[in-house]
Design a protein around this nucleic acid. Structure first.
Length: 935
DNA sequence: GGGCTCACG
DNA sequence: GACGTACGTGAGCCCG
């Protein structure tokens, strides 16, 4: 049957896939001969994902991958400068092109290119033919040049964002329907492809003109009617150039092409062809995954046994030698069985441990079972707290039969878990260590696969077990969701039948052990062993202690404040409704936007991409000069935030047993090395506004004790002064000057004794801007000054402190060359987007500039925290919280004066002896009955 | 569940 | 000429 109605054709933009793959991955080479294969590796991964994704659902009946053939096309005959300003291809990319064609055929997908034509023309021609035959077409690409083809059975799919692009999306981008896209492109031109267009006319203007005149020829014919002289001239003087531009951007829908649609019919990959290709490329992990998907055995690696794709995080040793077999896992039900496992652990000296509990909140979770793994494939699960389903009215029910008493199991395990000679491996061991600590077992020594992954690959991928297993072992772990259910019918792990729990839990321990075996040697090769050993692993027990200690929060104080906020909010709400002349939900940005900009017609209403008006604080502040309502909304919002997020939600986090709030710190939550605090987040308790600051009065010390706060003074600016080597900044710090005032004086030629708060404020904003990878736009917005003035400030700053620009350029260059940046202590932060094009490039650059500074500061306080417990061991004091540059302690009243100098010394000398800063770090201290007083 | 808004360093 | 921009986080609310 030939292609026609009911058939669906996928046209894949192969060249875009290649470039995306090339820039997304580090420069990998084939181990056996050094052949560059990074783009091929990424390309194959994308193809595999494409094949997997299209197994079900609205799968295409026909498909092809389209490539560009060569740089010269018929368009060069029309306009020689077409695409003339394209940068040279990277030299390690060109040799990969033929391999991507081979890869496509290996996956049994048709592969098309044609001399003298661009891939886009082939796509256009095939799309037109398919449409004429009555079929439908999806073009897998996000290239705007293809958008002219959309409509009437043809749509695009952005494979990266998984976003459908139909006529509406095209209109959103170009301001005209798909059939007029080339008119707009002809007018606006394209700097990337070197399409000239009309000088002085951009996309916005072009769309406006086409909307008004209907099409390009009419517009050119009636150009004389345009009232703006510049526009009129641009069109009249360049009519020919515009017509040429139109021929350049118009795709050829009827090029000669021997391929028939029928020959593009979809066939599943032939295992032998695809596996032998992947094997020849030495993609071990992908070979395994593809083999698993095709349900055949992976071929043995031939060329390079034990080979490694250098720099690859999709490393070949990821291939599991042993398949996962849940049936082989043992359920341990009595002491005799557990003793056999303990003997095996003692013999090996290493064990992966995982606990199953009733909650993600370690302070409330009840132990349900423990799994152990001593070598890949050899794992067990010890059920301890499983209960019969159902339960009575009160939810309680009897323990399932065939489980050891918890006390007996723990008594047997405790000596092993606490044995110095036995390494306990976990994935996020802080969680399990806390569960076991509450049961009287202090687990040590430990290794943690999540932290190993973080030390090696921060910025590259996430570090959860499912992701790691999939990525490095080519294995999808059993999902927890089907076991627990979701929504109202969700149950806790103790209700999971034991046989299912065995498979799930033992597999987790098995995966953890396999990941550890894989990561352990890699740490060294990635040169992050020291980072892992000094900044990650030793922090686990320190954070566990802090989290378990918790901080006392006074419920009555919060409750009183909450009531006061509610009253004020009610008053403001009435005022706001009055001014608006109607009742509406003040908390709804959508409704507020409509009131402000539609009903009241205030100026400056701008709709975002979702079509809603922006009503952020910056917008409302600008409007406050026009009307009183926006100011009231700002006040209301502040109170609403304080009430819902702090005075109310915080009360729910007070643990009923301890009466304290126990946050949880994530060691891998921020790519830069900072910690992140969750459930609740105690790193964003208000302090900047006077009203918010009072929330901190609810964070108290118990009777007879005090809260002590120690924080680093200007740590990031000091680190900047050191790494960028800025003599003026260093000297100012050495002399204990006000750093922002000094900057202001230097920049604006104002003597220090004549400094005004406003000038200092501007300098402060610039200092912070520098740390963030400053841009004229960003500074302008922050200071609410014209962009030109902001740019002037920045130029002047770079002039006065020449090392800064050098540091920024060097950092970005390093990131581009290496794919990561580093802190002074060797922490790596990967920057995979740094070589990308488009707006993402700006983000990546600024992040790369900021990361070494923010990351070094994070390393410094981590070092201080690791050393703190030993330093304050003799003092009646506990470290409770970390807020990036601050440590908060709870201390016996009479020990405050002892603690402060000792803790300060630890913090100020935290860099020693690994790094010698040319600027000394200083720490400010305070104490009080509550956090507001202490800070 | 995504987007908006806003709290912190 | 046009585009989009300060860095790093987490949480609560609205709304489809």
């Amino acid at each position: 049957m030939s292609f026609g109605k009911g058939h669906h054709l996928h046209l894949i933009d192969g060249s875009a896939f290649i470039f995306r793959a090339y820039h997304a991955l580090p420069p990998l080479t084939r181990k056996s001969d050094g052949l560059p294969i990074g783009a091929v590796a990424g390309f194959c991964n994308m193809l595999f994902r494409y094949v997997e994704d299209n197994k079900q659902g609205d799968a295409p009946t026909h498909a092809a991958v389209i490539f560009d053939h060569s740089a010269k096309t018929f368009r060069n005959a029309i306009y020689p400068a077409y695409k003339a300003n394209r940068p040279e291809l990277p030299e390690d990319l060109r040799p990969q092109f033929p391999l991507t064609r081979q890869a496509t055929r290996a996956f049994n997908i048709a592969c098309i290119e044609a001399e003298g034509y661009e891939a886009d023309d082939i796509i256009a021609t095939l799309a037109c033919r398919a449409r004429a035959a009555g079929g439908t077409v999806t073009i897998l690409s996000s290239d705007k040049d293809l958008m002219q083809l959309v409509g009437d059975g043809v749509e695009m799919l952005d494979p990266m964002k998984n976003r459908r692009i139909g006529p509406e999306e095209v209109f959103e981008k170009f301001g005209v329907a798909p059939d007029r896209v080339i008119d707009v492109q002809a007018l606006s031109g394209d700097s990337v492809d070197n399409v000239p267009g009309a000088p002085g006319i951009g996309m916005k203007t072009a769309a406006l003109l086409i909307q008004e005149y209907g099409d390009l020829e009419t517009l050119l014919a009636r150009a004389g009617e345009i009232s703006q002289p510049k526009r009129r001239a641009a069109l009249q003087d360049n009519a020919e150039l515009i017509r040429i531009s139109r021929r350049l951007v118009a795709l050829d829908c009827a090029m000669p092409l021997e391929v028939t649609l029928d020959s593009l019919e979809v066939h599943p990959p032939q295992p032998e062809a695809v596996l032998s290709f992947l094997n020849a490329m030495e993609f071990r992990s992908l070979t395994t995954r593809v083999a698993a998907s095709l349900k055949v055995a992976a071929p043995p690696m031939e060329a390079a046994r034990g080979a490694e794709v250098t720099g690859a995080h999709d490393a070949p040793e990821a291939a599991p030698s042993l398949p996962f077999d849940t049936a082989a896992y043992e359920c341990v039900r009595d002491a005799a069985a557990l003793e056999r496992w303990i003997a095996a652990i003692r013999e090996r000296g290493v064990v992966a441990v995982d606990t199953e509990t009733t909650s993600l909140d370690e302070m409330r979770a009840e132990l349900v079972g423990i799994s152990l793994c001593v070598q890949a494939g050899t794992a067990c699960y010890i059920p301890l707290g499983h209960r019969q389903g159902g339960g009575d009215l009160f939810g309680s029910s009897a323990l399932t039969e065939g489980q050891m008493p918890v006390a007996q199991a723990l008594a047997l395990l405790k000596p092993v878990l606490e044995d110095d000679a036995i390494l306990k491996i976990g994935q996020n061991m802080k969680y399990d260590a806390k569960i076991l600590a509450r049961l009287g077992i202090s687990v040590a020594p430990i290794d943690d696969t999540m932290l190993m992954s973080y030390a090696m690959h921060a910025g590259l991928n996430s570090h959860g077990m499912d992701a790691l297993s999939d990525q490095y072992l080519g294995h999808q772990p059993i999902a927890i969701k089907p076991l627990l259910g979701s929504g109202k019918s969700a149950v806790t792990f103790d209700r999971v039948p034991i046989d299912q729990a065995v498979a799930y839990a033992a597999e987790d321990a098995d995966i953890t052990l396999r990941l550890w075996e894989l990561f352990k040697p890699q740490l060294h090769r990635a040169h992050v062993t020291t980072v892992y050993e000094t900044l990650e692993r030793p922090l686990v027990p320190v954070l566990a202690q802090m989290e378990m200690a918790g901080i006392q929060v006074d419920r009555d104080t919060l409750s009183r404040m909450s009531n006061a906020f509610a009253q004020k909010m009610a008053g403001l709400e009435a005022e706001i409704h009055d001014m608006a002349g109607e009742k509406f939900n003040v908390g709804s940005p959508k409704q507020l936007g409509e009131i402000l900009f539609d009903k009241m017609s205030l100026p400056g209403g701008e709709k975002g991409k979702t079509g809603a008006y922006a009503t952020g604080a910056d917008v409302l502040e600008d409007l406050a000069t026009e009307h009183e309502l926006p100011g009231r909304v700002l006040d209301w919002r502040q109170l609403s935030k304080l009430k819902s997020t702090y005075t109310d939600a915080l009360q729910d986090h007070i643990n009923p047993e301890t009466g304290r709030v126990h946050t949880s710190y994530s060691l891998t939550g921020a790519v830069t090395g900072r910690l992140a605090s969750t459930d609740p987040n105690l790193q964003n308790i208000p302090v900047r506004s006077e009203e918010g600051r009072r929330i901190r009065e609810a964070f108290v010390a118990p009777k007879g004790r005090r809260l002590v706060s120690l924080d680093y003074s200007q740590i990031e600016l000091r680190i900047l002064a050191h790494v960028a080597d800025i003599p003026a900044l260093k000297q100012a710090f050495r002399e204990g000057q006000d750093i922002h005032a000094m900057t202001a004086s230097e920049m604006f030629n104002v003597p220090l004794d004549q400094m005004t708060p406003d000038i200092r404020r501007q300098a402060k904003a610039i200092n912070f801007g520098v740390i963030y990878g400053i841009s004229g736009f960003g500074l302008a917005r922050n200071l609410r000054i014209p962009r030109s003035a902001a740019q002037g400030f920045i130029d002047r700053y770079f002039e006065r402190f020449p090392g800064i620009k050098g540091y920024m350029d060097d950092t970005v260059a390093f990131a581009k060359a290496n794919g990561f940046v580093q802190t002074l202590f060797g922490r790596k932060i990967h920057t995979p987007e740094i070589n990308a094009r488009g707006p993402g490039a700006g983000f990546a650059k600024r992040a790369a500039i900021n990361a070494p500074i923010q990351g070094t500061a994070a390393d410094v306080i981590r070092r201080a925290m690791v050393r703190m417990p030993a330093a304050i061991a003799g003092i009646d004091a506990k470290m409770l919280l970390q807020v990036h540059d601050e440590l908060l302690f709870e201390v016996a009243e009479d020990a405050v004066d002892t603690l402060i100098p000792i803790a300060r010394e630890v913090m100020e000398t935290a860099c020693d002896p690994a790094v010698h800063l040319s600027v000394r770090l200083t720490v400010e201290a305070g104490h009080g009955a509550n956090w507001a007083e202490a800070h």
